[in-house]
Design a protein around this nucleic acid. Structure first.
Length: 256
DNA sequence: AATCGTAGCAACCGCCGTACA
DNA sequence: TTGTACGGCGGTTGCTACGAT
């Protein structure tokens, strides 16, 4: 997909900057420069690389398209399944989700979610923001499906990124807030939460908030293992496996 | 064949958190 | 402690392709 440049560049220094779709020549300049000098210092990179782009644009292009480890092609069924699991756990944390899918970018996953998965969930009667049945969210299936495009642009009912709702007992989060967080308590809370699907959301919220508030006290490996343990839960397989069976298979393949 | 509507996705925008002087 | 620059992130835009009518 290409994007036509805006009719007129903005004034000042920005007037010198090129916008819109990248040309192969620009890609080549950027790729060769990063290969030679490495990533970073994006603000000054365009000038050093001889590009008439802003640093942000260069970084985005590199991260989403030029990086050598980018995996091209359709999202596989197992990748889609993982995206669904991770989104249920993490919400719209596209970069975190992308971190669990080697070769996939946050932008790609975000686009795939918005164009495929959210609609798929709605068709299955699941609220793509909360992963709860739409009926429980107070919206009928057909209504929600009809309103899907608009719903995508409304603020989420559950906003996972700022201050997720906490379980009734605030002790884990308070510990986290003190900087001495109790990751073990978070984990045990999660295990209890998985006893019931409804409670699971609370558990995930708690885990999520624990991660948000206490990254410093949970190293990456620990959280990575934690995510692995969550996304391997049989509850999820049971839940989405049924829907997937009913749906036949993922609607993948339409892209490109 | 022409027109319209929708899907898909690259790219942009603006905000936020962090690092550093 | 404060201000600034920078990188990163999620949300949104807008263009092209394509199918339906």
């Amino acid at each position: 997909m290409t994007r036509k440049p805006p009719p007129e560049p903005r004034g000042g220094a920005a007037a010198q900057l090129k916008r819109g779709p990248w040309t192969p020549e620009e890609d080549d300049l950027l790729a060769r420069y990063v290969a030679r000098e490495g990533e970073g210092r994006w603000r000054t990179l365009p000038r050093r690389a001889g590009l008439l782009r802003c640093g942000k644009s260069c970084r985005l292009r590199w991260m989403n398209y030029l990086r050598p480890d980018i995996k091209r092609g359709p999202i596989a069924a197992d990748e889609e399944d993982l995206i669904l699991r991770l989104h249920r756990l993490l919400g719209n944390r596209w970069s975190l989700i992308a971190g669990r899918l080697p070769g996939r970018t946050d932008n790609e996953i975000k686009n795939y979610w918005n164009s495929h998965l959210s609609k798929k969930l709605i068709a299955q009667g699941i609220d793509p923001r909360t992963h709860r049945p739409l009926a429980a969210a107070g919206t009928s299936h057909s209504d929600a499906a009809a309103a899907a495009p608009a719903a995508d642009k409304t603020p989420p009912v559950v906003e996972p990124s700022v201050t997720p709702p906490l379980p009734a007992d605030p002790s884990p989060s308070s510990a986290v807030g003190d900087g001495g967080g109790d990751f073990a308590a978070m984990m045990s809370l999660d295990a209890e939460g998985f006893e019931g699907f409804g409670d699971q959301f609370q558990a995930v919220d708690a885990a999520r908030s624990g991660f948000d508030l206490g990254c410093a006290m949970v190293d990456d490996d620990t959280f990575s293992s934690f995510l692995d343990s969550l996304i391997n839960e049989d509850h999820f397989v049971d839940y989405f496996g049924d829907h997937k069976d009913a749906d036949g298979q993922n609607d993948q393949g339409g892209a490109n």
